[in-house]
Structure formats: C-alpha cells, structure tokens
Design a binder for these strands. Structure first.
Length: 804
RNA sequence: GCCGGAGUGGCGGAAUGGCAGACGCGGCGGAUUCAAAAUCCGUUGGUAGCGAUAUCUUGCGGGUUCAAGUCCCACCUCCGGCACCA
C-alpha cells in the first residue's frame, strides 16, 4: 500500500518538538571526547526578521555540525544575538518604547524562525550581547585593554555621520559615506576613545600564516593592514637647526628628490612661521584643505593642488642640495610622517604634480622614459645619477642607501602600516557604557571590577544631540558618582561602545555561557577553543573578523586564553540576490521571505535549495522554480518508501553507485560543494527509479547522507522503516573502496584528438596494453588504414590515435 | 589606478590537462485525466540532414600540447575590496 503523501509541515513540527524536548543538540560537558566547534556569525535581531541570506550560512554549518555528530564528535554549534545597535535604538525612539523591549521581541521572533528551519543549534548556550551578565564581561575586557595602554582617549578628527549623529570607525566608512545610512561622512574633531589595534598590526599579519582562511579573506586583511617597508630620512632646513622627517618606500631614489611636500596640517609650518614669506597663502591653503570632506579630498581623478612654501629650503642629507618645499593635500598627515620627498621621475603622483607646477624631474633609475611618465618598475631598473649607488639594482640600492643614512645618523629603516587605531566610542544610548569615571583629582579611573556591569539607566529620551553628546550625558543621576579612588564627586564616561565590542568575543562566551566569575572558565576554553570552522560574510573581513582577532590576540597575551588565534578555519558564503539578479532590498521589491518559502515547500526543501542553488561561495539569484524543483526531489525520496524491499545490504546492481555516492557526498560536504553533493544524490534517486525498486539498505544509506541537509524528512522515513533510535544518533556511513572498482570501463577513441567512437574495455588495462587495444576491430575500423604516427592511452579515459 | 574573483546552453550551474554541458529549472512531445494540477515516460547547445552522421561551440586574439573551459602571453567585460598610504 502506498505511503501517504509527503507533508513537510506536519513532519517538521513533529521533529522540531522531539529535538527540543530531548535536548538533542546540546554540547556535552564530557571533555574526554574529541570536539568540534562550528560557528556562524550570530545575527543582529532586526525588526525585519530573518533574511534568506541567514539560512545559507546556517545550513552550511548545520550540515557540517550534524555530520560531525554522526562521526562521533562532541559538537558545539551555538547561537546568540548581536543585539546592540542603531536600528533598534531608532525604532525605539520612533515608537517610544524601550530598546530592551524591542530587542527582546525581535530575538523571540528570530529564534522561532530559526527553529522552524530545524538548525541543530545548542539553544541552552544562547548569548545576548545586551544582557547585563554579558555586558559585564565586555566591559571587563575593555578595562584590561585600558590597563594595558591599548585603550586611550584622544582628540582627533574623526568620521562623523551627521544623520546618525555618531562617530564612525574607518572601517565603517565606505566610499566616503556612512556604511549604515549612506550619508556623506564629515570630519569633526572630537575627543574619542580609541583602541590601539595598530600595536597588533604585525601580529595580525603574522597570525594569518598559521590559519586556514580562504585566500580572499587573507588577502583582504593583508591589504587592509597594509604593511610597507622603507626608510625614514631626516631633512634639515637651510640656515636652521630645524629638521623634519619623511617616510619613503624608495630611499634608493634619494638623489632624484627634486621637491618636498608637507601635508597642509604639518606642524613645521607653524614652527617656521617667521621664516615663511608667504605664510598667509599657506594658511589659506590649510583652511581650504580642512574644509574638504574626506570624500572630496579623495575624489577620483582629482587635479592635484598645492602652494610653494617660500623662504625655506630643505637640505638633501646625501648631497647637500637645496630642495624647495611645497604644501599639498595629496600628502596625508595621518600616514607616515605627514611629509614626503618627491621623486617625480619614479612616482606617478609626484610626476603629475611636477608636470603641473613645472618642477624638475631627475631620472635616477634607468629603464623608462621619465619625460613621458614616471618609471616605477623596481625589478629591472638600474640606478643612475646617484653617485655611489650607480649601477646597483633597486633592491641593492635600497640596502646601500639605508646603511649609509644610518651611518650618518640621518635615517633608518622603517616599517609602516595603513591600519589605523580603532575609533571605539559612540555617542548613542543602546551600547555598552564605557566603564570609566572622570575625576578632577584622579583623572580617568576605571570602574572597579566589583561594580561591573555599568548598566544603562532608564531614560525617557534616547535621542542623540547635535552637539555630539550621548543621550546618557543628560542623565544627571547616572552621570554623577563618587570617584572610586578618592571618593570626591566625579562623572561617568557617557560614550558607549560600538556594536563591534560584543561581537569581538562572543565565541568565547559560548564555551561557558553561564559562568559568573569569569568571561569563561579556563577548562572550557582550553577544551573548545579555537573555533574549528567559522563561516561568515565577506563584508566582515576588515571589521568583525579583524577586530575579534585583535581582542583574542590580546587576551592570549595577558594569559586569558591559550590559543593565539581564535579561528582555525574561515570560509565565506556568497550573497543571495533577488530573482532579477539584483541585490535583495525592500525598495527594489525583490525580497524573498523565508517564512513564505517554508510554508510553500517546507523547511527541508528550503534548506536543500539554498545548498543546491549554486556554488556556495558565489553570489546567486533566487529562483522560485528552482526551489520547487528541490521539493520535487524530496517528494521522490519520500515515495521511495513505496518501492522499498526488505533486503538489508546493497543490491549488486547498485553496489558501485551507492558507494560512489556515499564517497562523493562525504567529500563534497567537507569542501562545501553542497550543490554537487546534492546532484549526486539526485542521480542516485533517478537510477533507483530506473530500476523500479530500492533495498532497505540502500534507502537507509541515502537517508544517512541526506539527513544533514534535509533532517526532518530523513528522521521520519528512518522511523517509518522501524527504527527506534533517531537518525542523528547513527554513525556516518563508510564506503567500500573495492566496490568503486569497475570490471569494465568505457573509453573514448580519438582519432587525431577528435572523439570518433567509444568502446568497453577491461578496467585494469594499463599503458602496457596499448597495442592490444589498438588491435581491436572497432579501433582499426576508425583508423581505416591510415598511417599511425602516435598513440596515447590514458587508462580509464581514452585512446588517442594520431594518424597522417 | 592597485588587489581579489568571475565570464560555459534559454536560466542556475558541472567538469584531478583526457569524452564539455553532470544535476536542476525552463521548453517540446507523449501517457494518465471529462479537463486541469500533480505524477510518470521520452526529448532538449547551435547549424546541415529523414537518418546514421558531419560541423561549430566554454568572453576576444595568439601560444604550448597527441589533447586546453582548465596551462602560458596579450586584451575585453562584469562583480567585490582598496584608493593620493609616499
């Protein structure tokens, strides 16, 4: 009698309830078993609910987590909420509710949506970054950073978003506009909390050599850190004891320096005010530059501008030549020393500037035509017009000049990084308060550990002010405290931390989420860390991923965690685009809602489609028909119950394909080639229908390898087959290498490289048997009497006969 | 401009230098049905041919090789990141 039709809604609800009640996927505290820690980026619980992008990453890791459990690992696959953030705060302002209430409602919604997709998360270890028990440890880590001199307050120009009324980190400014709202970012001088991530630039770079991250991620982080090796060289001013330092990556071209450029803000201008005969013009240029936003200043194809500094010359330390000095905003105060030596013959920017202002161009590396363009090749060039460097290659010349400058005491080798310190304060309400107290007498005093967490006060108005002060600043009751040091009246810091704070260490908390005496216990950390496999979005490469590596490296240095790097392996998923191939967004009207998809085809088919739709690491447009096709496949799997026999093992006819499929699926999952793994299972099912029946053993093996992708239906059929134990308690199936060997194989016969026929031959023939195959009647027929020039036999593949 | 990634049927995509187009979607034809949906069977890169078959085909142009989607050189387009970083 045929089984009833496949009803995903009923099956899925049933198994989700069973899993929940049996605590099926909670990590065990038994630390004697081998562990596997799989991680996905914990979601920001937005009001919009789950996006179809979330399940792509989640399902991919869920498959790995489920497979690992079947392989006998103690698996930690946790979930939590990155719940601080502006959208929640803005929603709260607009609707006059407390952000904490909005957050709770959103989390509840997210959790129920995730449960409907059947992810095997360990919900008993949920973390929530806004929970005071969590905030306490975020603040604690901040204080460790502060105590080690890695958190400091500085007055500096920052990126200010006039719409969010908030300062932004460099990493949050994209193309000159606010990453979040798209408003052009302006520069504003403010006192800000900073984290000295630059102190870890080299460690962040070195650590990449020891982790298994996809290359794209490593390359992007390396570029962002931007290490360069060069030299700092001191230039004196004529008739003065004053000097200034430049940074250059091409010290070898020192003889070709024909002018100097200072950044408009360079302090030398102020110091030399009396000697500069056009001081007013210099000041005017400085003001003009300051008015420009970062965006204008870096706009594409911008014509370079500048003014000469009159009355002063720099003296080239290597040959005593006097060199004119210019101001130009193509030199940035924030990188290197804010001053450069310009070598127009061998630097494109200097060349453009020299041409515009008719400055001399001296060739010092032969190989190009410096009248036409700057010659920047560092491989081929040989030094000329450079005294003792003449005849040396660039690399040799660099060494020689640095040695000479060092000897003379006017220069030395120097490494620079593009990475900047991390602007760590935000002038908003819904974030972790920075646990510092300002005392007139004692200065900045950390909140004592016993007083953590510093919790957010209840306020009636979360609205930030245009003055750039946090809403907390107007909360007198909260702000005014007594100094923990001297007891005199003092004031709390009113800035809060950025959203990146909580997400910089959440993976540590998962190891021991209920610990009240430490952010996590040593034993739990030693057992679970590092994260074995972390999948997430490319957009976090230079933000969350870099920040959290920094925090972890620091915690390692102060002895809080054992492993230096937090993540052993990092992979990344592609974006899901709308059906029209454009980015999904409300305004484009092409958003696919996961709830609707599940209602129509079920969670298993939804998961299956998300994994089948294309290469995992590439952007893919959604296809409603494609999703339906996946449902059709599950219908076919379901109906296999109608044609199943009682035979236990594999039938001889299907033995080879069964083993091949188990092998392919097992290996493809590990490589995240989910689409081809699923294709292989579809092929198997097609083959089974072609034969009209399936043995119990074959069906069971299919269910085992399909269950990580489509767990509910596999549990159900597994139970229908009479099993008492759930499928997720079964061992992952092995394959039999012997069964993969065929008796006979079909090979292609090529005549001069073109396929002209196919024949079956014994599979074990080797190159030594070439003559035998050549002699076969079918082959001779194709050769048709022509002269054989060459024969290539590739066992198992083809025979290529080259004829005249 | 620099650094990554990618260009393959109508579409999403397969393919350790070894039979291009697996698998799915869509299309076409048929079965079932009063009819439709669902399901099942067949077929499906282009061109020529009733056909066996021939021929062309992996962004463009060269090259290496018995053999190139895959390797090398040069170029074009798209996506992502960085961008006056000295």
């Amino acid at each position: 009698m045929p089984v009833s039709s496949y009803d995903p809604a009923a099956i899925e609800a049933k198994w989700q309830k069973i899993w929940e009640e049996s605590h099926a996927f909670e990590a065990s505290d038994d630390h004697s078993k081998p562990k596997f820690y799989g991680l996905i980026e914990f979601p920001y619980p937005s009001g919009q609910g789950l996006h179809v992008g979330h399940p792509r990453s989640n399902t991919a890791m869920d498959i790995i987590a489920r497979k690992r459990r079947m392989e006998g690992y103690n698996v930690l696959f946790p979930i939590g909420w990155d719940a601080f953030g502006l959208p929640t705060e803005n929603y709260a302002i607009k609707n006059k509710v407390h952000p904490a209430d909005v957050t709770k409602a959103n989390i509840d919604h997210f959790r129920s949506q995730l449960k409907m997709i059947g992810f095997s998360f360990d919900y008993s270890r949920e973390v929530n970054t806004t929970d005071p028990n969590y905030v306490k440890w975020t603040q604690w880590i901040f204080l460790q950073l502060y105590k080690h001199g890695l958190a400091y307050k500085a007055e500096m120009p920052i990126n200010w978003c006039p719409s969010c009324k908030c300062g932004l980190a460099n990493e949050e400014v994209v193309g000159g506009v606010c990453e979040r709202c798209g408003t052009p970012v302006i520069r504003r001088v403010k006192t800000q909390w900073m984290l000295r991530i630059t102190a870890y630039a080299q460690k962040l770079l070195d650590g990449l050599d020891h982790v298994d991250f996809i290359d794209r991620v490593k390359v992007q982080q390396r570029n962002w850190i931007g290490r360069s090796t060069g030299a700092e060289i001191d230039f004196c001013l004529n008739d003065s004891d004053e000097k200034f330092t430049v940074y250059t990556t091409r010290p070898d071209t020192l003889f070709g320096a024909t002018y100097m450029v200072l950044s408009p803000e360079h302090p030398l201008i102020d110091r030399m005010k009396d000697r500069i005969t056009n001081y007013d013009a210099c000041m005017a240029y400085r003001e003009e530059a300051a008015r420009k936003s970062d965006f204008e200043r870096s706009e594409l194809n911008k014509e370079k501008t500048g003014v000469p500094v009159e009355g002063l010359y720099a003296v080239n330390p290597i040959n005593g030549k006097h060199i004119p000095i210019w101001l130009s905003d193509y030199v940035l105060m924030s990188y290197g020393t804010g001053a450069i030596m310009a070598v127009p013959a061998h630097d494109t920017r200097d060349w453009e500037f020299a041409k515009k202002y008719s400055l001399p161009i001296i060739e010092v590396v032969a190989g190009g035509d410096v009248e036409k363009e700057a010659y920047t090749d560092i491989q081929e060039g040989v030094l000329v017009n450079s005294d003792f460097l003449n005849g040396l290659h660039v690399a040799e010349a660099k060494k020689a000049i640095i040695a000479r400058l060092t000897e003379m005491g006017v220069g030395h080798e120097k490494v620079n990084y593009k990475l900047r310190d991390w602007v760590f304060s935000r002038q908003r309400y819904w974030g972790e308060p920075i646990p510092i107290i300002h005392c007139d007498q004692c200065g900045m005093v950390p909140v004592p550990e016993a007083d953590l967490p510093v919790v957010l006060p209840k306020v009636s108005n979360y609205e930030p002010s245009d003055s750039g002060e946090s809403p907390l600043a107007s909360m007198d009751d909260w702000v005014n405290v007594s100094c923990p040091c001297c007891g005199k009246p003092a004031r709390r810091e009113t800035d809060t931390m950025p959203q990146w704070a909580g997400s910089s260490w959440y993976f540590l908390r998962y190891c021991d989420p209920h610990n009240s005496s430490a952010f996590a216990g040593k034993e739990a950390l030693d057992y679970w860390m590092p994260v074995d496999w972390y999948n997430g979005g490319m957009e976090h490469t230079t933000l969350h991923l870099l920040y959290s590596r920094f925090w972890h490296l620091f915690l390692h240095d102060i002895g809080c965690v054992s492993a230096p790097e937090p993540y052993k392996k990092r992979t990344s998923h592609g974006m899901i685009l709308g059906e029209n191939g454009e980015k999904m967004s409300k305004s484009r009207g092409n958003v696919i809602n996961p709830d609707d998809v599940i209602r129509e085809i079920g969670a298993d088919a939804f998961r299956l489609y998300e994994m089948f739709m294309g290469a995992f690491d590439q952007a893919i447009p959604w296809s409603t028909n494609g999703a339906k096709g996946c449902r059709k496949f599950l219908d076919r799997v379901w109906r296999l119950q109608d044609i199943v026999t009682e035979e236990k093992g594999f039938s001889s006819a299907l033995n080879g394909l069964m083993n091949e499929t188990i092998k392919k699926v097992s290996e493809d999952y590990e490589k995240m080639k989910y689409n081809t793994a699923i294709a292989a299972m579809m092929t198997l099912v097609n083959e089974i229908y072609g034969r009209g029946q399936v043995t119990r053993g074959e069906l069971e093996a299919l269910l085992l390898i399909l269950s990580p992708v489509a767990p509910h239906i596999c549990e159900e059929i597994w139970q229908n087959l009479g099993h008492k134990e759930p499928i997720h308690h079964q061992a992952w199936p092995a394959w039999d290498e012997e069964a993969l060997k065929h008796q006979e194989v079909e090979i292609a016969i090529q005549i001069s490289g073109k396929v002209r026929g196919r024949i079956m031959i014994p599979a074990d023939l080797t190159k030594d048997d070439t003559e035998r195959i050549l002699a076969l009647e079918d082959v001779q027929k194709l050769i048709n009497g022509r002269q054989v020039v060459k024969v290539v036999f590739v066992p198992g593949r083809l025979l290529n006969v080259v004829v005249k």
